[in-house]
Amino acid sequence: MRRRPNPKIYLVTGIILLSVIAVSFIVGLFWTPYGINATDPAAKLTAPSLQHLFGTDNLGRDVFSRCLAASRYTILVSFAGVAFALVLGTAAGLFAGYFGGILDRIIMVLSNSIMCFPGILLALMAVAVFGPSLYNVIWALGLVFAPTYARVYRSGTIELSSRDYILQAKIMKVRPGRIMFIHIFPNLMSQILPAVITGLANMTLSESGMSYLGLGVQPPAASYGKMLADAQSYITAAPWLIIFPTLMLVFYILGLYFISEWVRTTYGGGRA
């Protein structure tokens, strides 16, 4: 007999994975076994041991401490970036979908042209011009992600606009702003929620890529992407330098995917 997987499995796995990150985030804020940038010339590239749970890197820095500390930037960039993208995308999508016509055309052409810069290219461009800093990374990635949300809101708004209750509101001459944000917006929650959670995960992928290129989170702050870039010369000599930061990233991203999958299957809503 065939069974559909129980959506609760997604939720439970997601929560377990994310709690690992949440614990490292909270612990990392207050305590790390060693200083984040404290070097120990006597203990370079040592394998994981009881002294150094995740081993040490080429400068003798404790990987475990750095993994704890790096989670805060991963979380900060993903949440702040998605929040920025969401504000921009929501407004653009609601206006485009509700008013249609020329405004819709303009917004869609703008968002399409943003999407024409493949991957993180637009964000790289912004960082090249304005310099690599945490805030530039956040708004630049937010800009890259905004069209995704604009599309979800636009199609949702177009769909809802033909519903009788929106027609009713138009007949009652409710102001367009009110129709958009009070009448339509709450009804798109179930569609936007999975997109927001998936967005957090994708934002993390992008941020780690930028940090890997040295254009994301800047030293002295620790970030998983930068840790992996530093480890590149020691892939075979010190695999733990790659495995642990990667695991941290995978736990966070996979946890988010599972939660969004759970939201999607439980509350219906849009597709990926």
Binding site: R163, Y165, I166, P186, M189
Partner: peptide, 23 residues
């Protein structure tokens, strides 16, 4: 005023009856 055909979409699912009347 108007009353439409489909009761499934005649009211906004995100809000209560009181909100509708108030609106």
């Amino acid at each position: 005023a108007a009353v439409f055909q489909d009761p499934a979409t005649s009211l906004n699912p995100a809000h209560t009856v009181r909100w509708h009347l108030n609106e």
